[in-house]
Write a protein that binds this DNA or RNA. Sequence first.
DNA 1: CATGGGTCCTGAGTGC
DNA 2: TGCACTCAGGACCCAT
Length: 281
Amino acid sequence: MPELPEVENVKRGLAGQVVGKTIVGVDVRLPRIIRTPDDTLRFAAELQNCTITGISRRGKYLLFEIPPYTLVSHLRMEGQYRVAQAGEEELPHTHVVFRLHDGTELRYRDVRQFGTMDLIDASRAFPTGLVSLGPEPFDESLDSQTLYRSLKARRAPIKAVLLDQSCLAGLGNIYVDEALFLSHIHPERAAETITRKQAEVLLVAIRDVLSRAIDAGGSSVKTFVNGYGRHGGFQLELNVYAREGQPCRVCGTEIRKLRVAGRGTHVCPTCQRQPRKKRGG
DNA sequence: CATGGGTCCTGAGTGC
DNA sequence: TGCACTCAGGACCCAT
């Protein structure tokens, strides 16, 4: 599942392959992927003869700069981009194809069909998820005091709050579990009970795990590949995620899996002390 | 407003 | 072997 490190790697991989190229045609095979505009024929028509001038990332969103538009793309669970020669056989589940002037194609495929694309210009509102996004984890103006105050306002489990993109942008199930492990914080801890010191440790851990994952090319637990179709390597360095039943790399205790905020959640019961149960629990 | 549960979707895994 | 069933989860929608 592409989170910030995976999307960052997709961005870097695609940048060298499609920036500077002009779109000569767009084929939309699965209209549900295109959220904006409603009319997918218009989506294709408006992009025709536009040039991709840059690619950036905000949280888990990929932003293609295609003046006068921005194409906002979210990979959700299993969205993938590939660049191929026109005529080269397509992989299954290819839903959107951008034909480029040099005979290559930018192809979007997505087994689960959860991914979305919004074509935005000055006259259209940005997709809600993008406007309500919290700060980037590596934003220099983000300090632990800001994170502390955000957490203090929420009674939900810390895991649920960290998954909430309006609190902090870019974390998903893998890196939330990993950051909480590194911080010795149990995922069921109510966010409001996190101390200033713990918020400081947590922010360091979030930045540490994300930057190492970016450097390793992201995590390919199931299906992730970057813009060149290559797997990442960070799955080998995970401490808790997808390691149920295996020994903790720090203390040897068996990693356990539980459900928090409706998500599979991995903890070391020794390194991450459980919060005190409520009365009657 | 904050919170939590249901929903979208397909393939992999499980049990009989 | 085959079939029914469960599970995986990011963001959105909706009820409380």
